[in-house]
C-alpha cells in the first residue's frame, strides 16, 4: 500500500517535471498558434477554407509548404497588403487579387504561426519581430 502511494506520487512528480520542461519557446508558440486560429477564422477562412483548401482555381490553398518556406519573409506583406499578379501554388496558376487585411503586426504574426503550422506546414513560430522586419521590406 505504502509502496503504491510512493509509486503514484513519483509518477505525478514525473508528469509535473515533464510539463514544466515545456520550454518558454514552446509556450510562446502555443500562444501565437491558438490566437492565430481565432484570427484565421475571422479573416481568412471564408476564402481559404477551414482546412486551408482554397477554392478551385479561384483561391489558392495554403498547403504549398515549399511556397510558404521560400516566401517566408514576404508572407506578412501578403496578409497585410494583399497580393496581386500571378502566383504558382502546387503547380497551379492563380491570378486573382487577394484583398488587404487591416491587422496589427501581432495579429499577422499569430495568423502566420497558425497557418504556417497547420494544413501540413511546419514553419515554426513566426514572431512579431520577424513580422515587423518583413513589413518594413514590403514591395
Amino acid at each position: 500500500m505504502k509502496l503504491k502511494a510512493i509509486g503514484s506520487i513519483s509518477v505525478l512528480i514525473l508528469i509535473l517535471f515533464v510539463l514544466s520542461c515545456q520550454s518558454e519557446e514552446n509556450l510562446e508558440f502555443e500562444r501565437y498558434y491558438s490566437n492565430g486560429a481565432v484570427v484565421y477564422q475571422a479573416h481568412c477562412q471564408n476564402c481559404h477554407g477551414a482546412n486551408g483548401e482554397g477554392l478551385s482555381a479561384l483561391i489558392p490553398p495554403l498547403t504549398d509548404s515549399v511556397f510558404l518556406k521560400n516566401n517566408k519573409n514576404a508572407l506578412a506583406c501578403y496578409v497585410k497588403f494583399g497580393l496581386k499578379g500571378q502566383i504558382s501554388i502546387k503547380g497551379k496558376t492563380f491570378d486573382d487579387a487577394m484583398p488587404a487585411n487591416d491587422l496589427s503586426p501581432m495579429e499577422v504574426a499569430q495568423v502566420l504561426t497558425f497557418a504556417g503550422n497547420s494544413f501540413g506546414n511546419k514553419l515554426n513560430t513566426i514572431d512579431i519581430q520577424q513580422v515587423e522586419a518583413g513589413l518594413g521590406k514590403c514591395k
Binding site: 471564408n46 477554407g49 477554392l55 483561391i59
Partner: peptide, 13 residues
Amino acid sequence: CPSICPVMHRNML
C-alpha cells in the same frame, strides 16, 4: 466579393 461569396460557392459546389 471578398467576404461571404467564396464560402457560399464552396458550399454550392
